[in-house]
Every structure is written in structure tokens, then in C-alpha cells.
Design a protein around this nucleic acid. Structure first.
Length: 737
DNA sequence: AGCACGCCGACT
DNA sequence: GTCGGCGTGCTC
């Protein structure tokens, strides 16, 4: 039949295109085949579950090669149209196979082709008022009375199946009990309790907060991106809360993205106290069913707010009203493998197509966002003051050149530490390296413990008595004598959190101390326990990696020491300086309150470095001015758009061959305004046993980059050399390593 | 990515 | 004589 529709399907495969199929043979299947429905299709030898992205009237594929859909898996689209738009946009922008983009969007529970319904049955249980209800009020409603009695006997709630097993027309009675407010339906563990006992009163907004709220509410039905640039403690969350409540009041939903799971509970707790709507959490720690539950609830408009990490940017929303990206500068919003999307950037794209505001909040804006604000693409809202009675900490450089160092601590740093402890305060020691020491070396022959699979040193982990590679999974026993010369004179060089902890325990044996890093918080609940020790005052010295710099506030910390800031100054990655500045400011933001302003000491061997000087003398925005001037001069982002083509293989040759051919392909496209850098070996060429190389594409104009990529990728895919490497394209890479 | 097909070495 | 190596090509 000439009139048969052609279904353009995204099939899970690394191929950068859609596949055309004919509708299934069974009768009636033609009715309403629409984009967003899942279909089972023959693909190669097997069957796969794909998603219809478009329905066309004709195909470029010869009719004899078209195959038929085996089954249509949904009677209604599972993915609503606005989210399909995001899929199409993202697949185009990131030049990623649409089938893999769909995999990122669809909850795992829907990828296998099972019906888009929860297997966790709904339950009904008594509410607080239902538990205290007087059964006498139900004298004229015997069914309700029976039902109430059954529910009273089952505090964990009853499912529809359980209720039906008692026979009779239970549904009207149940509906009546729900209407009385005595019984509530429950979806499952992913949805937070629907109604908190009491809504806390609003704290007053200060002038800047009020202005920020008013600015966003001035046009709630129009797309506008706001950069909420507020120092730590300035009350950004309160601004989000007020806006979210307005949005909910208008019957709309809000999506709030946070960089990591650890930050969701505190934000949820706060939202729960203040918002009388069902909330959903979405992060990688959920089970498939919990995730599906939250996803469906958001899609069907049954929750007012979704709080989630990176992948939550793909949650469908029935009535979006506001998007919030908290800590927008955080690297965690960029997926670092596979489909390398930026959740922050996609959030802005979503807001634009939904015609609603998006707020990017942070104390340390990324240079991209700051630049967007100066170009008026974003509107900047500033919260310059801490909301409570706190004063910003004083940041000072500590020139440690030629000073005798004790386990990474200089004498002035130790004196400051002693002084702070003596005056009854807490101290935070920040060192961005876990383990005991980054190097183990033989003092007799110079042998260094290296990873067999990476171009990296093994890190000494004293507590586990082992050597670990921080770039792959390699672990081995700590050598007792030198494997090269046999001498029993191995020494650990450099410092990690574990060593600083040991040194400070020896020096301050009577002072409570906690170490917070990935190693010491691996066990469930241990982070919470440590944070409780800090808040309760039993721990007065906190040592940790950047885990410590995120989210938590420690009001009794009156001194923060940054031990190794220099790592960010001379890195191969042009963003390293920006990350260092953000980290220092974030660490500084953890400390101090009004009566005890905090002090931050940054140890450095480069006190004259322009980045550090700008940061100390003129604050974070002073640093940004300096860094932006340098980026402009170098022609780097945000003054250019870049993409990185990476390749890796077990041997050294193939990645460079492939990238060399890729470079030739790029030149053959004849695109102008494009600069190709490389191919060059990655800064750590061998990692986990694989050799890595990269080719960077730089264009002053973003449009030129997209034009090039659109022509380049099809040519790249045809290159025979792709067979011998694993390759990937990273548009807007965050780590150029 | 999988999975086919296809052309050259060590085994029953 | 075959089982099987992984090089190349395709998936509507």
C-alpha cells in the first residue's frame, strides 16, 4: 500500500541515524501510531525496543529492504512531545546516536519493553486524622466502617488486590474515606510523604532576595535564563523556594537539579517543610521501580517538584513552570562518558522550549555563565550578602617557599591551627588528594611504585596497607622492600588526606578529628555520622577532599587551610585555574559566622601568580576578570566553541592513526573558521591499559562548529580506522584531558 | 556495538 | 580435509 506510514525509529545502537520501519501487520495497529511510542523491531539478527521519533509518508530506503515493526508496545506515547523535542535537539547538538540518547531518557524499567505501568501496586493507608477518627461517625456507612477497621489493622497499608479480597463494592467506600481525609493513596517509596504536618512560616527575605524573586516572577510565562550569583549563605535556596511555591500555586511543576546525591536529602527536607505538595527524588541510587515511579508521577503531573541529579534533566513534566540548576558551575552536570551531555545546558534548552524561566544558582559562576550574563543572554541577579548574621571570611595566601614542611603543613599554618583550636573553634583542612601519599619511592635506587596499566604513580593507602591507582582499579600490597634493588628503604612522598589526618592526630591527640573523603565515607551512613560529629562539636578538626567543599555549612569553623592549591595553577587543562578558584571560594564559604568571622589560609609556592593574586585581592569576580581576559587572548571558551574527538586502544598506534585520518576528513569538509589542534597523546597517555589520544576542534563561532560536525561525523563513521579504536566526540568538553 | 560473512593456520 | 582466527560491512 502506497499510503502506509513510515515509522522513523530510534533503535539502541551506536549508529547516528534513525531507522525506517513499516507498521505491524496486525489489524488496527495503524490507529494512532505516534512519536513517543515504543515499538519492538527486528534489527540485524535480533529484536530490539525502539522509540518512534517521527512518522513520515515516504522513506529513502528501497521498499524491499523495509521491515515491519513486530509489536507496538504502547497505546499512548510514553514520552511526551516536549521531551521528544529535547531528544532530537540533544542528538543533533551532541552528534550522538539518537538510540543512545533515548536510552538516557527512558527509565531502565521502560527500555525492556514492559508496560509503562508500575509493578509496585498502589496502597491505601490511614492518615493521621484517620487513625484518630471516631468510627461512630460511620454508623450510617457500614462499608466505610469495615474498611476503616481493616486499614486500622494494617498500618503498612493495603493494595487494591487486598481490599478486593474482602469482597463487595469497596471502591466507593474507599473514595468516601479519602474524601474525609482519613485515608490517602501512596505510590511507593520514591514519592515523599504527600503532606507534611505543618507548613513552616516564611522567613523574611532581604532586599536582594526579594529583588531576585520579583525579577523572575515579573515574567513567569516567558523564557528567560537567570544567573543567581549569590555568595555562600546568601539564601539562594530561599529564593528557589519562594519561586517554586509561586509556580506550584499556578498549577505548574518545578525541576531542581543538584550536582550530587548527597545534596538531595537536605534540600528535600527543606522543601518538605515548606511546600505542601508531593515531591519526587530522582538520582542514580534509586531502584528501577522507584525511578519509574518518580518518572511517571512527574510526567503525569502528580508531583509539584522533582529534585534530581544530572540525569533528572530528562524527566518529563506535565506542566513545567520553572527550572533550577543549583551549583551550576559544578562539573558533575556534565556526563563524562558515553552520551556526554551537559544537564545544565540542556536545562536551559528545555526552559526555552517550555517558555518558562530557568535559574542557574551558584556562589562561583562558571566563566561560561558569567560571560553569558555580560552578553545579556542570561540576566544576572546578585545576592552580595550573607542572609544571616555572618561576615565573609578573610582569604590569605601563605607563601610556603623555603619553609620547613611537616606532613604538608607549614609552621605558620600549624600556628594558626593551634590558635584556632585554643580559642575553641573548629578547623577545616582541605587537601584535594585522598590516600596517605601520592608516591612511594626507594631512597637507595630511586625506584617509584607505578601502575602497570596507567602512566601514573600508585598512591600509598596506609590504613589498608596497599598501593592503589586512582585512575584504574589496580590495587596491590604495599611493598616492604624495593622490588628493584631489594633495599628496605621505601619512603612515602607527598601528602594525602590520610597522612594529614595521622600527622594531626599525633600532634593534637586530645582533639576530636574526622576525615571526609571517598575512602572514609564509603560505608552507608558514615558521612552523616561524621557530619553529625562535626555539628555536635565532638570533632574539631575536619580533614577532607572536595566532598567537604560541597553543600555543608560548618558555622563553628573559624579557620580553613587549603594545603595544595598550586595543582590548579600549571595544569594542562585550561579550566584548572577556574576550578581551583571555585574550590577555594567554596571551601572559604564553609566557614565562619558573625561573632567569629572565618579565616582562610591558602598555602602556595606561587604567591605572585596572577590568578591567586586576583582571587585574594579582588575576590572571585576579580579572578574571573583575569581568567576571562586570558581566555579571550588564547581564543578559548567562552570566547570559542570547542569539541574534542577522543580515541583509545590497547596499542599506541591506532588512536593516533585514526585521529590523523579524522583530521584529514575535517580538512576535506572545507569548513572555514575552524582550527584543528592535534592529534596529540592525552596528558596521561596510558590509562587502564589503553592508549589515549585526542584531537581538539576550536571555532570562534559556535555555528561554524556545528556546521563542521554535521559534515564531519558521517565521514568519520565511514573511516575504516574506526574499527581499531574506541572513539567518542565531546561537544563542549569540560575536562580537556 | 553486535553479528554476519569471508578468507588463511593447526588439528581430528 | 575442517574448526576457527578476527578483518570488513551492515543494521530500516
Amino acid at each position: 500500500l502506497a499510503t502506509e506510514p513510515i515509522l522513523q525509529v530510534a533503535v539502541p545502537s551506536p549508529v547516528r541515524r534513525l531507522f525506517d520501519y513499516l507498521p505491524p501487520n496486525d489489524d488496527g495497529a495503524l490507529r494512532g501510531l505516534r512519536p513517543g511510542m515504543r515499538v519492538r523491531v527486528p534489527f540485524g539478527g535480533a529484536h530490539k525496543v525502539g522509540l518512534i521519533l517521527a512518522v513520515a509518508t515516504e522513506s529513502a530506503v528501497p521498499a524491499e529492504r523495509l521491515r515491519r515493526v513486530v509489536a507496538v508496545l504502547d497505546s499512548e506515547p510514553v514520552v511526551p512531545e516536549p521531551l521528544l523535542d529535547l531528544v532530537r535537539w540533544a542528538a543533533g547538538y551532541y552528534h550522538h546516536p539518537p538510540g543512545e540518547v533515548v536510552e538516557a531518557v527512558l527509565p531502565r524499567a521502560l527500555r525492556g519493553g514492559r508496560p509503562a505501568t508500575l509493578r509496585v501496586p498502589r496502597r491505601w493507608r490511614l492518615t493521621a486524622s484517620g487513625a484518630g477518627a471516631d468510627p461512630g461517625a460511620l454508623r450510617s456507612a457500614p462499608r466505610q466502617a469495615v474498611l476503616l477497621g481493616e486499614l486500622q489493622a494494617s498500618p503498612e497499608g493495603l493494595t487494591a488486590r487486598q481490599l478486593a479480597s474482602h469482597g463487595g463494592a469497596w471502591r466507593p467506600a474507599l473514595r468516601a474515606l479519602v474524601a474525609r481525609g482519613w485515608v490517602a493513596m501512596e505510590e511507593g517509596p520514591c514519592l515523599a510523604d504527600e503532606h507534611p504536618g505543618e507548613e513552616l512560616p516564611d522567613p523574611p527575605l532581604n532586599r536582594d532576595q526579594g529583588a531576585a524573586v520579583a525579577a523572575v516572577l515579573a515574567a513567569p510565562d516567558r523564557f528567560q535564563a537567570f544567573l543567581l550569583d549569590g555568595v555562600t549563605g546568601s539564601g539562594k535556596t530561599e529564593v528557589y523556594l519562594r519561586l517554586i511555591r509561586e509556580v506550584i500555586g499556578r498549577g505548574r511543576q518545578a525541576l531542581v537539579l543538584v550536582p550530587e546525591i548527597a545534596l538531595t536529602p537536605q534540600l528535600m527536607a527543606r522543601f518538605r517543610q515548606r511546600l505542601r505538595v508531593p515531591l519526587a527524588i530522582l538520582h542514580s541510587g534509586l531502584s528501577d521501580q522507584e525511578r519509574l515511579c518518580a518518572w511517571l508521577a512527574a510526567r503525569d503531573g502528580r508531583v509539584g517538584v522533582v529534585v534530581g541529579t544530572r540525569s533528572a534533566v530528562f524527566v518529563p513534566l506535565a506542566r513545567p513552570g520553572l527550572f533550577v540548576v543549583d551549583e551550576e558551575h559544578d562539573l558533575a552536570f556534565k556526563q563524562q562518558d558515553g552520551f556526554r551531555y551537559s544537564a545544565r545546558d540542556l536545562c536551559v534548552v528545555r526552559a526555552r522550549s517550555a517558555s518558562v524561566p530557568v535559574i542557574l544558582g551558584t556562589a562561583t559562576p562558571s566563566l561560561e555563565s558569567l560571560y553569558n550574563a555580560t552578553r545579556s543572554r542570561y540576566r544576572r541577579l546578585v545576592l552580595p550578602e550573607r542572609a544571616g548574621p555572618a561576615t565573609p571570611p578573610q582569604v590569605e595566601l601563605l607563601d610556603v617557599r623555603a619553609l620547613p614542611m611537616n606532613d604538608g603543613l607549614s609552621p605558620p599554618a600549624l600556628r594558626a591551627l593551634e590558635h584556632a583550636l585554643a580559642s575553641g573553634g573548629q578547623v577545616l583542612v582541605f587537601i584535594n588528594r585522598r590516600g596517605y601519599a601520592p608516591t612511594l619511592t626507594c631512597h637507595q635506587c630511586g625506584w617509584v611504585a607505578e601502575c602497570h596499566r596507567c602512566d601514573a604513580h600508585m598512591v600509598v593507602h596506609q590504613a589498608e596497607s596497599c598501593l592503589r591507582c586512582h585512575h584504574c582499579t589496580a590495587v596491590r600490597a604495599l611493598d616492604r622492600s624495593c622490588p628493584a634493588c631489594g633495599a628496605a628503604d621505601l619512603r612515602a612522598f607527598g601528602q594525602g588526606t590520610e597522612r594529614v589526618e595521622a600527622a594531626l592526630r599525633t600532634r593534637f591527640p586530645d582533639v576530636g578529628l574526622v576525615r571526609i573523603d571517598r575512602d572514609s565515607t564509603r560505608r552507608r551512613g558514615s558521612l552523616e555520622r561524621k557530619l553529625a560529629d562535626v555539628r555536635g562539636g565532638t570533632a574539631r578538626i575536619l580533614i577532607g577532599t572536595q566532598m567537604l567543599a560541597k553543600g555543608h555549612h560548618f558555622p563553628d569553623v573559624i579557620l580553613a587551610l587549603v594545603l595544595n592549591a598550586d595543582a590548579g595553577l600549571y595544569s594542562a587543562d585550561f579550566r584548572a585555574g577556574e576550578r581551583m578558584a571555585q574550590l577555594i571560594v567554596q571551601v572559604a564559604g564553609r566557614a565562619g559566622r558573625a561573632e567569629r568571622p572565618g579565616r582562610v589560609l591558602v598555602q602556595t609556592h606561587h604567591p605572585q601568580h596572577p590568578y591567586l593574586r586576583a582571587l585574594i585581592l579582588r575576590g572571585y569576580h576579580g579572578f574571573c576578570d583575569a581568567a576571562l581576559a586570558e581566555r579571550r587572548a588564547a581564543g578559548f571558551p567562552p570566547f570559542a566553541a570547542i569539541a574534542l574527538l577522543r580515541a583509545e586502544a590497547p596499542r599506541r598506534g591506532p588512536p593516533e592513526d585514526f585521529l590523523e585520518q579524522a583530521r584529514a576528513c575535517a580538512e576535506d569538509t572545507g569548513c572555514s573558521g575552524v582550527e584543528l589542534c592535534g592529534p596529540v597523546p592525552a596528558p596521561m597517555e596510558r590509562r587502564a591499559g589503553r592508549f589515549r589520544a585526542q584531537l581538539m576542534v576550536v571555532t570562534p563561532l559556535r555555528g561554524d562548529l556545528q556546521r563542521l560536525l554535521a559534515r564531519w561525523l558521517p565521514a568519520l563513521e565511514r573511516l575504516p580506522a574506526t574499527r581499531r579504536v574506541r572513539w567518542s566526540l565531546d561537544v563542549d568538553p569540560q575536562e580537556v584531558l
